[in-house]
């Protein structure tokens, strides 16, 4: 069985094919809606959307992943830990941040299993997204290594692991249920 991205691509290829037939017969890419028969123009322009995002001020976070560490920032005066990490303390412009390592143990706050996926996630199998509360109170959102909802429960013990996301092959972090 093909994955959701392949299905979406196949649908678009089919639309292209219809449009090409229409271009040959009536000269323009105007299709007839299969349900209602109304005329639809099949867009002849296509763009790829991909962004470059600055991580300069938080590059430590990404460098630490290869050392197996999960970092956050901490406001020196207030002691408040910020995750996702940010370099400005939102409550006090005078306060400064330092980098701290996050604990890797916690409990599961909530989760969901994603069956219908966004286009750019359509090549993955069904995946679980959850939020874990770490032992220091910081919450973190990530995939959970369990896709059977009956095996997960609110408040259960979990740990955080640094993992390689395939097929892209880059480091990220994952919530892993711990057998109690």
């Amino acid at each position: 069985m093909s994955n959701q991205r392949e299905q979406a691509d196949a649908f678009l290829a089919q639309m292209d094919q219809f449009a090409n037939m229409m271009k040959q017969s009536i000269g323009v890419p105007v299709l007839l809606d299969q349900k209602t028969g109304v005329a639809l123009w099949w867009d002849q322009r296509e763009i790829k959307l991909r962004f470059v995002i600055s991580v300069e001020k938080i590059r430590k976070f990404f460098e630490a992943l290869s050392e197996g560490k999960l970092l956050a920032t901490k406001c020196k005066k207030s002691g408040k830990i910020l995750f996702p990490p940010q370099v400005d303390c939102p409550d006090d412009p005078e306060d400064e941040v330092e980098w701290v390592e996050l604990p890797k143990e916690g409990e599961l706050v909530t989760w969901t299993v994603i069956y219908v996926k966004p286009y750019s996630f359509g090549h993955y199998n069904d995946y679980t997204v959850g939020i874990a509360k770490l032992t220091n109170g910081v919450q973190i959102l990530a995939w959970v290594r369990e896709t059977d909802p009956s095996k997960l429960k609110v408040g259960q013990k979990v740990k955080i692991e640094i993992v390689k996301r395939e097929p892209e092959g880059y480091l990220t972090y994952e919530i892993v249920p711990v057998q109690e």
Partner: peptide, 13 residues
């Protein structure tokens, strides 16, 4: 990294 969907967001709730 985690591909949340809108149903997914509310599913967390």
């Amino acid at each position: 990294n985690f591909g949340l969907t809108f149903p997914g967001y509310y599913a967390l709730y």
